[in-house]
Design a binder for these strands. Structure first.
Lengths: 135, 135
DNA sequence: CCCGTCTAGGTGCGCCGAGCATATGGGTGC
DNA sequence: GCACCCATATGCTCGGCGCACCTAGACGGG
């Protein structure tokens, strides 16, 4: 058996697990910072943890945001390349962004509590030959 | 029609959206701190953001953890009340907890970035009669 | 004795987010 | 003509999650 291509080290970053619908607030934030089209958002999403290349998900999320009235879009003719659908935030979108932030702050604090509880515990009990739970 | 009981103010906390499989690492952490049975874990989960009463989910998660070899359980006879299934962590479980923490740290940082980016932006652009996006 | 309540553990089921593959089509350069 | 980039999508499957519901022992009151 021969490995077809080396998929070695597919994620140098430890593959964060993002909150459930994190894409939505991220898009709202990016669009609040600056209106954009999908392909552009795909790039600007990277520093927010979306390293994986999944345009399909992005475009679906944008359409859903639009049917929910949180963003609105217009087609923009392009001389060099395909037309692009430009998105911008609605007032509803801004409001929901604000609510999302409130919610995500709570998430942030819970995560902080989890992490501090973990580090606190391992500080009390350094893993040098602990009572050795046998499996 | 008469309200049977006041369900007023169902969530004083703004209903945080937790990361995808957050229950798993939480259970691993709690069991690392101290072995316990399901019903007990249900209580100890509350400060970690699981305010909603969903025993089914918990027990399912525990069974899954066990089939994955991350915890092990024994039945414990009880004189006062039903028997209880006591869970404790395996070595694999501890290792996976450690990995989960690494991953969740990344999540934590990303969330922090999102939140600081939001607050930074609203600081630059206080919402007093902004250019008024019309819907 | 029956019944409600608390403790403890568990199943069924449908929805929807997430991941992955695949399709379409215009523009540019070889 | 063909490969490649840009740009926008659709199809499909899987699993987490939420909600409802079920079983059963112990205990106390009417």
């Amino acid at each position: 058996m021969k490995e077809p291509e080396k998929p070695i080290a597919p994620d140098p970053t430890p593959a964060q697990v993002l909150p459930k619908n994190f894409l939505r607030p991220c898009l709202l934030l990016l669009l609040r910072e600056q209106p954009a089209h999908g392909y552009d958002l795909l790039e600007r999403l990277r520093p927010l943890g979306f390293n994986r290349d999944d345009p399909g998900r992005l475009y679906r999320a944008l359409r859903t945001l639009e049917t929910d009235g949180l963003v609105r879009s217009v087609w923009e003719k392009s001389t060099s390349g395909p037309d692009r659908r430009m998105y911008e935030l609605t007032r509803e979108g801004m409001e929901l962004l604000h609510e999302s932030v409130t919610s995500l702050k709570a998430t942030y604090e819970i995560l902080g509590m989890f992490l501090s509880r973990y580090t606190e515990f391992v500080a009390l009990r350094p893993p040098k030959k602990s009572p050795a739970p046998r499996d």
